[in-house]
Simulated scan of single mutants.
Amino acid sequence: MAAANGRLMKELAACREEDTSGVQAKLVTEGDLRHLHGTIKGPVGTCYEGGVFQVDIKIPKDYPFSPPKMAFTTKVWHPNISSQTGAICLDILKDQWSPALTIKTALLSLQALMCSPEPSDPQDAEVAKMYMADRAKFEKTAKFWTETYAKPKDEEAAITRVCEMGFDRDSARKALEKHDWDESAAVNELLGGL
């Protein structure tokens, strides 16, 4: 158990380093090595570019002999990722896992999967069907989901835009936070309060 914890701590140190890979992982709760939060930058040149995708990572007790349990918490339109639950269909997270692999290599594999979907072995049949039948519609939908769910929010710009409509900063911030930074919903609430 101590050896596994030592390995996990080394892996986390490698995942926290700023590098050009676009993947990172950190503890969800300080001291709990069994629950991690991963992030994956959408690969350049794909419909996921510009997005930052969140991944929930649970480490089993027999790690590294069993794969980590990973699921996207950011909604993603991809044949191998459930659009409903974030479940992932990737062989190294199942029967092709090897103790030589790490959390970082698993995150890098997810990033690579975003570049090269496998629609013939889907997690989400509806998305896979669209991918194979109408690639342009798939890419348009995936870009829309990236813009909607994975783009970092510019909170200051949103507050400024709402304030330009005549509302004070404190009210604007509270309404935006309440509505998950949806400016239309925040403004509608503020207008309803007049």
Rank of each mutant, 00 (worst) to 15 (best):
P60V: 05
A175Q: 07
K75W: 02
T73Q: 09
W77S: 07
T85M: 00
R169A: 12
G6K: 14
D134F: 11
N188I: 01
A106L: 01
P79T: 07
Q54G: 00
L191C: 15
T146F: 08
I59P: 05
C15N: 04
P60T: 06
I59D: 08
E183L: 11
N188A: 15
P152G: 06
A175F: 07
C47P: 11
Q123A: 13
E139L: 09
K69Q: 11
K137N: 14
V76N: 00
N80L: 01
A100M: 12
I57R: 08
A186F: 09
T102S: 10
D180N: 15
S120M: 10
F72K: 09
H78D: 04
K174D: 12
K129Y: 06
I103F: 06
T160W: 08
T160M: 12
P67H: 02
G51N: 01
A71R: 15
F138L: 08
L27T: 03
P64A: 09
A2K: 11
E155N: 02
V23M: 05
I40A: 07
E139H: 03
A125S: 14
K140V: 13
K151I: 14
L8T: 01
W145T: 01
E30H: 07
E155S: 11
H37R: 05
W145R: 04
D134S: 07
A133E: 15
T141C: 05
M165G: 09
I40S: 01
A25K: 00
D32S: 06
V23Q: 01
